[in-house]
């Protein structure tokens, strides 16, 4: 409203452009840092197709969760229950399969249906009970984690060999799971930019009251976004079960998928208040995190120190974006 701000933007209107530029820069810089680190630690073998595939492979779990988180944040909500849901997905999948190939499809469908249900619950608590989404999803996460930890103390069951194709199967030099992640990103990008649902997601996140008055059923959009976000977390659970051959009730928490997915979404330029941002930004954030992790590993950083650095990097990365914002944040 301030006139100063109005003048700050030059009199002529700004046109949206360069949506690709920032993500591309982040990806290029991350990969360059990765190569430099590999060269500096004399692990030039990492600068190869296999090296890069391995690098991306380690980001798949975070990537899929973050794609879901992007939707939740774009509608102006947030999801802190994803880490728990990843554990639930992984444990339920391996426990139901018990190494039986014929249980693969029913178990996977069950996990996805359960995830969708949790997402709908999240969405309804946020829209109908009007509970702050941070608290709502935190609470749902606590409930799920509590029930899961009470029921399972350790790795439960196992997945059949056939199911491991999901994580380890390859097409040429690239694994199926990497292709899946990029396919999901592409679909989500198309949905956000080319469909009415996408337009409603941005409208709901950008100005909920205005969107409602324009006839958009904003509650439905929020519930749908939460459902898709939870589905992505459930899918990640299936992927981890496939990769680890079994699920344990702490796999999600250990991956810190809640915090890290939020961090990569924000690094990717999506604003926490909603209504602005997109898929490719998130993917660039994912790749940045993957590179940093790889660099620490190559440099031989201790696992606990790595955790210290991870925390610091999350804060630093968000700070790099947040610093330019005018006004206050809490």
């Amino acid at each position: 409203m301030s006139e100063a701000a109005a003048i700050a933007a030059p009199a002529r209107a700004r046109v949206r452009s360069g949506a690709w530029l920032a993500p591309a820069m982040i990806v290029l810089c991350s990969l360059a840092a990765y190569c430099v680190a590999a060269a500096a630690t004399h692990q030039t073998g990492q600068i190869s197709v296999d090296g890069f595939v391995g690098l991306i492979q380690r980001t798949v779990a975070l990537g899929i969760v973050a794609l879901g988180q992007t939707l939740a944040i774009l509608v102006g909500s947030i999801d802190l229950s994803v880490a728990t849901l990843v554990s639930v997905g992984a444990v339920m999948a391996s426990w139901m399969m018990q190494g039986q190939p014929d249980m693969m499809v029913p178990a996977s469908l069950f996990v996805l249906a359960l995830s969708a249900l949790v997402g709908v619950a999240n969405g309804l608590i946020v829209t109908q009970l009007r509970v702050n989404p941070l608290i709502a999803t935190l609470g749902v996460g606590l409930v799920l984690q509590g029930i899961l930890s009470a029921s399972f103390q350790d790795f439960a069951g196992s997945v059949p060999k056939e199911f491991q194709i999901f994580a380890y199967g390859t097409v040429g030099p690239v694994t199926l799971s990497i292709l899946l992640m990029f396919a999901l990103a592409l679909v989500e990008w198309l949905a956000l930019s080319r469909t009415r649902f996408g337009a409603h997601v941005y409208a709901t996140g950008g100005n909920p009251e205005g969107a409602r008055l324009a006839g958009i059923k904003t509650a439905r959009v929020v519930v749908l976004a939460h459902m898709l976000c939870s589905l992505a977390a459930g899918l990640t659970g299936l992927y981890l079960a496939s990769r680890l051959r079994s699920g344990a009730p702490w796999v999600g928490r250990d991956g810190v998928y809640d915090l890290e997915s939020i961090a990569v979404v924000v690094i990717g330029g999506t604003v926490l208040a909603g209504g602005k941002g997109g898929v490719w930004g998130t993917m660039s954030g994912v790749i940045l995190f993957g590179c940093l992790d790889a660099i620490f590993t190559m440099a031989g950083v201790d696992a606990f120190i790595k955790q210290v650095l991870r925390g610091a990097i999350v804060v630093a990365a968000v700070a790099a974006y947040a610093y330019r914002t005018k006004g206050h944040v809490a």
């Binding site: 046109v15 949206r16 080319r194 469909t195 337009a199 409603h200 950008g206 009251e209 008055l213 602005k276």
Partner: peptide, 26 residues
């Protein structure tokens, strides 16, 4: 009640987006 981050066209047609089968006619 505008969406500050979206284009003028997006704003004018919000909630009334033209298109078929859920796809936008940009």
């Amino acid at each position: 009640s505008l969406l500050p981050e979206r284009s003028v066209a997006d704003n004018i047609y919000v909630g009334r987006e033209p298109g078929r089968l859920g796809l936008l006619d940009r």
